[in-house]
């Protein structure tokens, strides 16, 4: 994060949050500019809503540098209801002892979160290429290998998920056996 220290110092927020807000800004700008190609309500509707998203994202990004009246609306309000549904900080799981697990994969040390992200990305790409039916057992085995799951349990889960997929194919008619390649 060292190389982003100046960026963090300028905005006064984490690099990851800057990235998140830039994502909102890029998407809303694209949608705002793209909406200019459409006339009437079909264009005006996305224009208004993407403009709202853009303004909110910019205000959030520059919230530490805003003048007083604007800073008030981006700051934490005094008290609303007192509870919320989806804040990580309230989740008792967050207070639970966590394992700072890392794994070395092909010489690279990865956090467990990175392993989840990479394996899921690989799983999705493999699903597109060879179909979900083939990709799923490969994904489960790869995941199990990377996080050291007991061999018997891993085989049980691999076989179980494959059977469930066959079930979807047979009873729900979902073509999980088809990928782009075959």
């Amino acid at each position: 994060m060292g190389r982003f220290a100046r960026l963090e110092a300028f905005f006064g927020i984490d690099t990851e949050e800057i990235g998140l807000l830039l994502f909102f800004i890029v998407v809303s700008t694209y949608l705002l500019v793209g909406s200019l190609a459409y006339s009437g309500f079909v264009g005006r509707y996305p224009r208004v809503f993407s403009a709202v998203v853009l303004v909110c994202a910019v205000l959030c990004l520059f919230r530490q540098r805003l003048p007083e009246p604007l800073a008030t609306i981006t700051s934490e309000p005094p008290d609303l209801v007192g509870f919320d549904e989806d804040e990580a900080e309230d989740d008792p799981l967050e207070q639970r002892a966590r394992s700072a697990e890392t794994r070395t994969v092909f010489g690279v040390t990865l956090s467990k979160r990175a392993i989840v992200t990479l394996t899921v990305a690989g799983y999705m790409i493999a699903s597109v290429l060879v179909g979900i039916l083939v990709a799923t057992p490969l994904y489960v085995l790869a995941w199990g290998y990377l996080v050291n799951i007991d061999r018997n349990r891993l085989i049980a889960v691999t076989v179980g998920t494959t059977i469930v997929l066959f079930g979807f194919m047979e009873f729900a008619g979902i073509n999980v056996d088809i990928g782009v390649l075959f």
């Binding site: 709202v52 998203v53 919230r63 989806d86």
Partner: peptide, 22 residues
């Protein structure tokens, strides 16, 4: 309510959901 850290964050989240569906 959910983004109790700021009103703008809540509105941003909700409106982003609306706008991507356009």
């Amino acid at each position: 309510i959910a983004s109790r850290q700021s009103l703008i964050k809540g509105v941003l989240s909700g409106m982003f959901g609306v706008v991507i569906m356009t």
